[in-house]
Computed example of a mutant assay.
Amino acid sequence: MATTETPACPSSEDEAQAFDVFAKACPSRATLEHITGRWGSLTLGALSECTLRFNELRRRVDGVSEKMLSQTLHALERDGLVHRQAAATNPPRVDYCLTPLGRAVVERLLSLIDLVEDRMPEVLAAREAYDTRGGR
């Protein structure tokens, strides 16, 4: 009869290497998708500026539907990146802000956003050259 052993708990050093976003079953893959998806990155970027209510976020993230923003906020809250604060007022007030983990993620995300915005002339030139030569 085979016995199964319970694996030892990884040390904090091992734990940092326990996740591999390139592995299909790794839970970090879903979190990365929530962060880097179109609405996730824009929502996190908007919340880096200040605490916002739902409709303020919707106006700031131009083009997002109410449904998509709601789904995005739920995913980011579940991942521990966004904090939802509901006040029992009339009418009810719900504010969204970044958690400490969310701020750490956004710091890196904003660097990427800045890089993309700064280098857009190169991107646009590359697109034009690609299109001119007929793509593939």
Results as ranks from 00 to 15, higher is better:
Thr31Trp: 02
Leu69Trp: 03
Met120Cys: 10
Leu112His: 13
Ala18Tyr: 13
Ala16Lys: 10
Thr43Trp: 02
Leu124Ala: 08
Ser48Phe: 00
Arg119Asp: 07
Pro27Gln: 07
Thr36Ile: 13
Gly135Arg: 14
Asp95Tyr: 14
Pro121Val: 07
Leu44Trp: 01
Gly80Ala: 04
Gln17Tyr: 15
Pro100Ser: 08
Gly45Gln: 11
Met1Phe: 06
Cys26Phe: 02
His74Trp: 07
Ala25Tyr: 04
Pro91Asn: 10
Ala126Ile: 07
Pro121Glu: 12
Arg133Gln: 07
Val123Phe: 11
Arg127Glu: 11
Pro10Met: 00
Arg127Phe: 14
Leu57Asp: 03
Ala104Ile: 01
Arg127Gln: 09
Thr72Ile: 03
Gly102Glu: 02
Ala88Phe: 10
Asp20Lys: 12
Arg136Lys: 15
Cys97Gly: 09
Gly102Asn: 00
Cys97Ser: 15
Ala88Thr: 04
Ala8His: 09
Leu110Thr: 10
Lys67Asp: 12
Pro91Glu: 05
Cys50Gly: 08
Arg53Glu: 15
Gly102Lys: 00
Ser41Met: 02
Leu57Tyr: 01
Leu110Gln: 06
His74Phe: 10
Ala18Gln: 08
Glu107Ile: 06
Asp20Gly: 07
Glu77Met: 00
Cys9Asp: 10
Leu52Lys: 11
Ala125Gly: 10
Leu110Met: 12
Leu109Val: 09
Ile35Gly: 05
Phe19Lys: 06
Gly45Val: 00
Pro100Ala: 11
Tyr96Cys: 00
Ser111Glu: 14
Val116Ala: 13
Val82Asp: 01
Tyr130Ala: 02
Ser65Arg: 14
Thr3Ala: 14
Thr4Leu: 13
Ala8Phe: 06
Gly63Ala: 05
Gly40Arg: 01
Gly37Tyr: 04
Ser111His: 11
Thr89Cys: 12
Pro91Gly: 11
Asp14Glu: 14
Ala88His: 10
Asp114Lys: 12
Tyr130Trp: 13
His34Leu: 03
Gln71Arg: 13
Leu42Glu: 02
His74Val: 08
Asn55Pro: 05
Leu124Glu: 06
Cys97Thr: 09
Pro7Leu: 04
Leu57Met: 05
Cys26Glu: 03
Arg103Phe: 06
Met1Arg: 14
Val61Leu: 00
Glu122Asp: 08
Ser65Val: 03
Leu109Thr: 06
Glu122Ser: 13
Val94Cys: 03
Leu73Lys: 00
Arg84His: 09
Leu73Ile: 03
Gly135Asn: 06
Thr43Val: 05
Asn55Trp: 13
Ser65Gly: 13
Leu52Ala: 15
Leu109Trp: 00
Val123Met: 12
Ala129Asp: 11
Gly37Asn: 13
Ala75Leu: 01
Asp114His: 11
Pro92Gln: 05
Asn90Trp: 13
Pro92Lys: 07
Thr72His: 02
Val94Phe: 04
Gly102Ala: 05
Thr72Glu: 01
Leu76Thr: 03
Asn90Phe: 08
Cys97Asp: 08
Ala30Thr: 14
Leu32Tyr: 14
Val64Arg: 03
Leu44Lys: 07
Gly135Gln: 07
Arg93Pro: 06
Pro92Ile: 02
Ala104Leu: 08
